[in-house]
């Protein structure tokens, strides 16, 4: 669905995005993770053709954003940076005014009503936007991104500034977009829990460079650790090494790509190591993220 090829953006002496190549398949919720200033929003700007690349290109459905932006963005909805609206218009008119900019595709009143219901703004949509709370503005931002009928939505920090209840509601909406409407979602965030709860795949950016890309499940496997309840830890360590397991700290091991925990346990038992317990430790994304960034 999305392909980035050697995308680079230089602002003066600062390289905001550095040779970024990435493929995002259709039908997934893909997380773009990185701390503030990592290059997430610049990547979104480049994808939406709002920022011109210094080098490289972005492709949506195989269409170059650089060469044919209007065609590439047909069927794309987006929240880019902080959502801003015409405060003097009501929510409904804001949606209509923005949808008019998607011509020749246009949104009918029925479609707008349906989207408004979907984001849960139907009882306040005729109120002036200046009276909206931050959470309502984010819902309105999501509504405008869904007009008219996108198959890809780009959401730049959609939960930014929301309270826990708002974050939960936004998460549910994003999941529904993917599950009920089959939309591909590219989500940028610095909230690790967001990626953990929503994304099937993720990429991590650090100082404009891609430092990790893969499926969340693979990442989970890659980062899983086990706490071993053994009598003699010193005697256990050389056996673990032979099995391809790495002791990361006392009584805690990390498996290599080829090793399995059952095989490791069998080997320990064969060498007469008494095992009282094996406790899987599921690392948080935060731990992985900080580890990855530290490595770079």
């Amino acid at each position: 669905m999305i392909r980035l090829e050697h995308l680079t953006k230089q602002f003066g002496s600062r390289r905001a995005v550095d040779d970024l190549s990435l493929e995002i398949p259709a039908g997934r919720i893909f997380g773009l993770l990185g701390h503030n200033g990592a290059g997430k929003s610049t990547t979104f700007g480049l994808l939406l053709g709002q920022i011109r690349p210094t080098r490289g290109d972005a492709f949506i459905r195989g269409i170059s954003v650089r060469k044919d932006r209007s065609r590439a963005l047909q069927g794309v909805g987006a929240i880019y940076e902080a959502a801003a609206f015409y405060d003097y218009l009501n929510g409904w008119d804001n949606l209509r005014a923005l949808a008019a900019c998607s011509a020749p595709a246009s949104a009918t009143d029925d479609e707008i009503s349906e989207v408004v219901r979907f984001v849960g703004l139907d009882d306040r949509i005729r109120d002036p936007v200046r009276a909206y709370s931050h959470g309502m503005r984010q819902r309105l931002a999501l509504a405008q991104a869904l007009l008219p009928r996108p198959d890809l939505v780009l959401l730049d920090e959609p939960a930014e500034g929301l309270d826990p209840e708002g974050i939960h509601a936004m998460r549910k909406l994003i999941l529904r977009l993917n599950q009920e409407r089959g939309l591909t979602v590219l989500l940028s965030t610095h909230l690790l829990s967001e990626v953990e709860h929503l994304c099937s795949d993720l990429a991590i950016l650090h100082q404009g460079r891609l430092v990790y890309q893969g499926a969340w499940s693979r990442l989970a496997r890659q980062t899983e650790r086990f706490r071993l309840g053994v009598d003699n830890w010193e005697a256990t360590k050389p056996i673990l090494k032979r099995c391809g397991a790495i002791a990361t700290e006392e009584f805690v091991i990390k498996l290599s790509e080829s090793s399995e925990i059952a095989e490791v346990i069998a080997e320990l038992v064969r060498h007469g190591i008494r095992i009282h317990s094996v406790e899987p430790l599921h690392p948080t994304l935060e731990e992985f993220y900080l580890e990855t960034i530290a490595e770079k």
């Binding site: 939406l48 053709g49 709002q50 932006r69 209007s70 065609r71 590439a72 963005l73 047909q74 794309v76 909805g77 987006a78 929240i79 880019y80 940076e81 902080a82 959502a83 801003a84 609206f85 015409y86 923005l98 900019c101 998607s102 011509a103 405008q144 991104a145 780009l154």
Partner: peptide, 14 residues
């Protein structure tokens, strides 16, 4: 200045 231009330009308008 008010950033609504960015909202407009999220759409396929030139």
């Amino acid at each position: 200045e008010e950033r609504t231009y960015r909202m407009i330009r999220c759409r396929p308008i030139t």
